[in-house]
């Protein structure tokens, strides 16, 4: 099957390798295998696979990871734009099943 990959060079994920203590939590929680940890140091393998779910940032005990967390949902973005707010997912439609 063809691989499912979203747009290139858009994600906000950043890793400060100097802060990393090699606990491997990021590699554990990432649903898309974005991280690998070698020699007690995390590395981003493929940034374009990141969906900005925020799991890595949330579980990094030394705050070495930053990402603009959010749901990649067009309806939420459009609803937010119409209401003049941040992306608003009320989950009454397609997602969250």
């Amino acid at each position: 099957m063809a691989r499912l990959e979203y747009l290139k060079n858009v994600v906000t994920l950043n890793l400060d390798a100097d802060k990393c203590i090699g606990c491997e939590r990021c590699a554990e929680v990432c649903p898309h295998g974005v991280f690998t940890v070698e020699d007690r140091n995390a590395r981003i393998i493929d940034r374009d696979l990141c969906m900005e779910c925020g799991a890595c940032q949330n579980n990094c005990p030394v705050e070495a990871i930053s990402v603009g967390k959010g749901a990649g949902c067009a309806q939420a973005v459009i609803t937010g734009a119409l209401r003049g707010t941040e992306p608003t997912c009320d989950c009454s439609n397609n997602c969250c099943g």
Binding site: V11, L49, G68, K69, C73, V77
Partner: peptide, 20 residues
């Protein structure tokens, strides 16, 4: 199809914002 992003498992907010 664009609105199927919300049900998919791999789209990022930054990407969807650009696409929208």
């Amino acid at each position: 199809a664009l609105n199927f992003t919300g049900a998919s498992t791999y789209t990022s907010l930054s990407g969807v914002k650009r696409e929208v």
